[in-house]
Amino acid sequence: MFGQELLNGVVVGAVYALFSLGLTLVFGIHRILNLAHGAVFMWGALIGYFAVTGAGLALLPAFILAILGGALVSVALDLLVFRPLRRRQGDEFGTIIVSIGANLVLMHLAQQATNAQTLRFPFGIFPIHFYHLLGLRVSLQQIVIVAAVALLVIALVLYLFRTNLGTDARAVAIDERTSMLLGINPHAVYFGTFAIAGALAGAAGVILGIAFNSVSYLMGEPIMLQAFVVIVLGGLGSVPGALLAGVMLGVIQTLTTVYISSELSDAVVFGLLFVVLLARPRGFFAGLHTEHRVA
């Protein structure tokens, strides 16, 4: 029983990690706390839903479309909101405020598009199939979720450490002015970071939308709260930290819901955030930083 709950927690945590990676990446490279990341996630789920129900696509093309859609929304956010602010020398405070504004606008548009309804994917969109491994019931869905998250994380690491654009991004994370002097195009780096963060959020949106079979314009808010805890626990800006902390939070939350109370799981999660801020504001995986951390 305990092992089963642990497994469920790891699967949910993997999705939290996927979502939080984008948030921590944008903060680590550009020092932007993008509070509209939850809205990008929600739009990913919506695009996936409309691709399946409206356009009649199969799940895999819909998933890819949602990833592209998430990237598009995220890049649009940078071009229309953050870039004009940068051009006018906005500070950290300004970026947080405009991202709150952008979050409201994106949520409002989604509310219009869905008539404020909670949408459900058609029944049987994902084959229901169970395996028995080491005494645990593992569903095909859980295996696919973990595999998809692992693939996307490997792609992210390859991008950051094996491509020129990734090297540029890491240089900008260390010092944006110096890297510009060295001939790095900052617009390309912003484009790349926001596109990847949006793609990860879009993927997470479809996965959670199918896993819980519920898509609504409000779905971005609770996951933002989880992601706050994940990125603080893992160290703001740390990629391996977000990954580990995401899985850890999923496990903690699942175990709290099962063994203590489901209503109190939010309070437990926030209590954790408070304790981490009090005891170790740089996060518990800050020891991993310097060379591994993007910032």
Partner: peptide, 16 residues
């Protein structure tokens, strides 16, 4: 703490 940490923790506080 400064900046982003305060924003994160206080938004969390409101939701809690």
């Amino acid at each position: 703490l400064r900046g982003a940490f305060q924003a994160i923790a206080t938004i969390g506080f409101v939701q809690i």
